[in-house]
Design a protein around this nucleic acid. Structure first.
Lengths: 190, 190
DNA sequence: TCAATTTATTAAACCAGTTTAATGAATTTG
DNA sequence: CAAATTCATTAAACTGGTTTAATAAATTGA
């Protein structure tokens, strides 16, 4: 749990006793490649922390996969759309590799936030960070060209190209595998 | 300040005394059409609540306007990318109409969050709501076609088409005014 | 290890958007 | 109110993507 503790403490100071007791709310889940944490029609009851591996957050429509996000080591994730209001999810959370995940149940987390101002603050600050990251993503999506977004992904998350199949990366970039292939060819020619 | 108080209380219970005292941190700003709250190169020092009017959150690159968001009545807004780390903004926050805004300074807000667990909780929950709204936006941007996104905007925010010039809406949708014009023509013909 | 399956590339026809430029409509301002 | 400016539409040529289909390469598994 050391990485998780370090992560939490990176947001705000938390008393040792509080943090240790908070750790008891998390349980470890091991996933094989292809296993899911969440499927459409189910409710996201947990918040997750990814200790090891790679998880896709995606939708499947008419046989087509639409990737919204790839999660890799040391991030919190869940389908927040379902988690917040406990509504049925439309998404998958699926292991793209063997994964180790720490899961904390929504009720437990809410109780922690109520009981501890420090943890509530951690909750606010981590949500704020998630928001600003997503905002940067929206900026890229609305302002940058496919080419710029591809090049940025190569730069910022080169590991993804090793661990994730190409057609999922294409989906994440909002183009088809054919389009991605053409884009790459065009780039390599210049 | 009634709308703002109602807004805050919609997230979580807050003691009257705490809320009343919190209101003292806000000051009212009146903007004429075209005036800005923030310009590139400046730091976002305040969080804002929009009492009345319409604000664009946009960037200007090579003479081109790229709209990231339109804010209308009863929402919180700022350039969170600049606000969080107090870095220089790359964006404008500009009044598209005469506006009335309530401004609270970052230091004051942070102090409120530190002093009151209730307000900290409000901070977390409003940030969470902002995140889930933005996530829905990312979903639409990455999954839906221009046509679908246009039709959804017409349905969900019809007021924007009355109060905002067309070319800004085109920019928000990620297309050119020419493209929007063609899209509309195509739709009207079916 | 070899067969089956999945994934990546290429080609060709197509299309929804772009750019540039011109015109017309609407809004702003002296 | 007229003149100036800004904004919206249209046309024409172009382009970066799409779709479909075929082939090649890589991965999986019996």
């Amino acid at each position: 749990m050391e990485n998780l503790k370090t992560k939490i403490l990176s947001y705000t100071k938390i008393d040792d006793a509080v943090l240790e007791s908070e750790m008891k709310n998390y349980r470890r889940i091991v996933l094989q490649k292809g296993e899911t944490l969440l499927e459409p029609g189910h409710v996201a009851t947990h918040m997750y922390y990814l200790e090891k591996g790679c998880i896709s957050y995606h939708k499947e429509e008419e046989g087509e996969i639409k990737v919204l996000e790839f999660y890799t080591e040391d991030v919190y994730f869940t389908d927040l759309l379902s988690y917040v209001n406990q509504t049925l999810s439309k998404y998958y959370l699926k292991a793209l590799e063997p994964c180790v995940v720490l899961a904390v149940d929504k009720k437990g987390l809410e109780k922690s936030f109520s009981n501890s101002h420090q943890l509530e603050r951690f909750g606010r600050l981590s949500m704020q960070e998630a928001f600003t990251k997503l905002l940067s993503r929206v900026e890229r999506m609305s302002i940058r060209s496919n080419e710029e977004r591809y090049l940025r992904l190569v730069e910022k998350r080169p590991d993804l190209f090793q661990r994730v199949p190409n057609y999922l990366i294409a989906s994440y970039l909002g183009i088809t595998p054919v389009g991605l292939s053409k884009l790459r060819k065009r780039l390599s020619k210049v």
